[in-house]
Design a protein around this nucleic acid. Structure first.
Length: 478
RNA sequence: GCCCCCAUCGUCUAGCGGCCAGGACGCGGCCCUUUCAAGGCUGAAACGGCGGUUCGAUUCCGCCUGGGGGUACCA
């Protein structure tokens, strides 16, 4: 394998059959990190040669997800379905060189052939019946309009060796290589042909792709050699698995990258999470920016074994990144999820919730009471355990009276004063503050009470306390 | 069936012949505390099995087992 001294150019080549999922995003990320470390280019290629599985919306979704993650690609994405003539010309070249041949076998015959092979417990692969058809006859039948595919002629003895940057040296026995299809009867190329042609056309230096391609990599090496093109370096990335050790799929809950955006995850956190799936810097550091990842990344340190996505860790990481945001930045991101509330109004509130958020989605319900008074009170939560409605109402009234007469609305004054009130009426601060908390916020789990009261303002606090007290004396609800 | 890859706590991993096998998530306990978090301290938790090689194997080799992938006119 030649050590490519040429400029580093890599590509991420999804097929547009759905949205970008975590596994694909990781492949794209590793490509991106690797190439930027080497000041190379990152290309995007759309592998849409399968007309049956094609999903029109897919490409836009994939591009949106990549953009959200911050994985910007260079140049205009290559779309394979637009390059049909290029692949046909390439197949023609191979035909002329004898490196490939036309196969006229019908799908039915191939199925029958495989059934027999299965029955005899032999490896299932093409029996090369059409490999011996003379070129002149083949040309004549093709010209006559007979349907055919083009197959690659594989060597039947010897071995093919691949030096993979992640998997190490892999040796394949050539006798096990199938004469796979390069050009389908509809004139579209298979992945194998298209990938080789396009990687060459775009001067790809490193093929960094999913581990699923490893078994056919030997055939790919043979193909590129048949064309006489320089071999790129290969790096096969192990799969990302779900908690059940099966490849990540819909049944594992969110898997599409864009769903994480909906779920309130920061792209920085998702990128960081993905980077550590199968890779580690070899140190104990674990929070990196994209820039740092580019600096530290190396294919040699990519784990050759499949990685199970630990979504709990993503939650934790997301919290870490949220805490690293400036209050203004967090306010801006939160405002996008709270229609009608400008970021500037959120900014003073952000310090109260910042360290409590694991996702942005948790923000709105946590902040809601700042903008909307509780619409009803449940005595069950308003009255602390072991207390009764009447004494709770009295406690709220005492608090209201004290606060109503206060001119210094500072956290220090509120805290000290309310503690004194609690002591005076014989309540523990625990119970007292809980009653106030529910009266003011309508919830038992909230940001720090005193600070929240300061932000809410005296009038609003007193109003809510009085309403809650009234609710208790007149019965349930408001 | 055949081919290929993989194998350290539940999970992500450090380790590159001699380590009390380290860290992180999650889980338990303690501290802090007006709730919930966050934070600090702390505990439980791993080298799949059998053979080699070696003075010595988690580490190197083989086999087995287990997991994954491929075996399409899908990518």
């Amino acid at each position: 394998m030649p050590e490519p001294a040429r400029p580093v150019r890599v590509r991420y080549a999804p097929s547009p059959t759905g949205a970008l999922h975590l596994g694909g995003a990781r492949t794209a990320l590793f490509n991106y990190l690797f190439t930027h470390q080497h000041h190379g280019q990152f290309l995007l290629r759309i592998e849409d040669t399968d007309r049956v599985r094609f999903v029109p919306e897919s490409q836009a979704q994939i591009e949106e997800a990549l953009t959200w993650l911050g994985l910007r690609w260079d140049e205009v994405p290559l779309v394979q379905s637009q390059r049909k003539p290029v692949y046909q010309a390439a197949a023609e070249t191979l035909l002329e060189r004898g490196a490939a041949y036309r196969c006229f076998c019908t799908p039915e015959r191939l199925e029958a052939m495989r059934a027999e092979q299965r029955a005899r417990k032999e490896p299932e692969r093409y029996d090369r019946r059409c490999a011996v058809i003379p070129k002149t006859e083949s040309d004549r039948r093709a010209a006559a309009g007979e349907r055919f595919v083009v197959r690659q002629r594989m060597p039947t003895e010897g071995t093919t060796t691949l030096h993979d940057l992640v998997m190490g040296t892999v040796v394949f026995k050539n006798e096990t290589l199938d004469d796979h299809v390069l050009l389908k009867s509809d004139g579209f190329p298979t992945y194998h042909l298209a990938f080789a042609v396009d990687d060459h056309a775009t001067s790809i230096s490193h093929v960094i792709r999913g581990d699923g391609w490893l078994p056919s990599a030997a055939k790919h090496v043979r193909l590129i050699e048949a064309f006489g093109w320089p071999l790129p370096a290969f790096a096969h990335l192990p799969l990302v698995l779900g908690p059940d050790r099966k490849p990540l799929a819909k049944r594992h809950g969110a898997k599409d990258v864009l769903e994480y955006r909906e779920g309130g995850y920061l792209p920085e956190a998702v990128v960081n999470f993905l980077a550590f799936l199968g890779w580690s810097p070899g140190t104990v550091e674990e929070i990196f920016t994209m820039e740092e990842l580019i600096q530290r990344f190396s294919l040699e340190k990519v784990q050759p074994s499949p990685a199970v996505a630990n979504l709990d860790r993503l939650d934790w990481l997301n919290g870490q990144f949220i805490r690293r945001l400036s209050p203004a930045e967090l306010a801006t991101r939160l405002a996008q999820r709270m229609p009608g509330i400008p970021a500037t109004r959120l900014e003073p509130l952000v310090p109260l919730v910042q360290e409590r958020l694991r996702t942005l989605a948790e923000g709105p319900p946590m902040l809601q009471f700042f903008f909307v008074a509780p619409d009803r009170y449940e005595p069950a939560s308003l009255v602390p355990k072991g207390r009764d409605p009447a004494s709770t109402a009295a406690a709220l009234t005492a608090a209201s009276a004290f606060l109503g007469g206060l001119s210094d609305w500072s956290p220090e004054r509120l805290d000290a004063g309310l503690r004194e009130v609690a002591e005076r009426i014989g309540w523990t601060t625990k119970d007292f503050f809980m009653a106030l908390r529910v009266a003011i916020t309508g919830r038992t789990v909230t940001p720090p009470l005193i600070e929240s009261m300061v932000q809410l303002g005296k009038d609003e606090v007193v109003r809510r306390l009085d309403r809650a007290g009234a609710a208790l004396t007149t019965g349930a609800g408001v």
